[in-house]
Amino acid sequence: MSASLKSSSRGLLVPKALEAEEAARLAWEHDLSLSRHRFVEGEHPVVRIEHLNKTFTGTPVLRDVNLNVWNGEIVVVLGPSGSGKSTMLRCINLLESPTAGHILIDDREITGSSKTDTTLLRRDLGMVFQNFNLFPHLTAKENVMIGQTRVLRRSKEEAEGEALAQLAAVGMADRADFKPPQLSGGQQQRVAIARAVAMHPKVLLFDEPTSALDPELVRDVLAVMRDLALNSGMTMIVVTHEMGFARDVADRVVFMEGGVVVEQGLPEEVFDRPREERTKEFLGSIR
């Protein structure tokens, strides 16, 4: 496999990706007690991360990360800044290319994908950014429409209907014709969520969606995310510092530090009875 060849050439040796059935079985056994997710006999994880390594100019940021995400599962990734959680998220939709290791979406290896495959892959992975990254020259509605019309080739009418529905779902229907600079940070982030959801992705990636917001604006955005998590059945991987959100909404909490997954498990387990010393320290520091 090209990915492993590439990785060995950089001095990082990782085993080949597991065969799908074998991987699913192992993941099942591993995750069964760690998540609120209702596991179904024989189901495969949507996202499979195996031995993921990422190095920035010689500095390792991710070290042998292994993680599975199941269909409809809400995974909240916690950790101090610089722990590699955002990088892991960005590796999943290949905004960063992994240095070594494997990422599989629906059992398909995406590491080492061609340009075209990467583009196709990203349709299935919606992303919400810390800084919203709305397109400032387009209105809120057009922001939600452009991916649908240009990428999914939906008709303008269909895209507009979907956009208005998604904007309504995030409480931004009355702001459909506003341009991003005319919206508050919280409003912009809600539009950004609508933009990602309108593409009907398999997985939604949230990269610290409330970190750039003033405290009073965080509430609305979290309300929208909570609604999405509880009512839409969407698979979500959320990197955040919002402990309340993690405790209430997450099916599983993953704690990362120093580029490795330190601990993962049910929210109440991780928050109330953390096993690892580093987890305790982190949770203690933010309480």
Partner: peptide, 20 residues
């Protein structure tokens, strides 16, 4: 001029407000 969530939406979400 407000663009905040409607009461209905917030009710339907039903969760607690911002816990930080």
């Amino acid at each position: 001029g407000k663009g905040s969530l409607s009461v209905e939406t917030i009710d339907s979400i039903g969760g607690e407000s911002n816990v930080r």
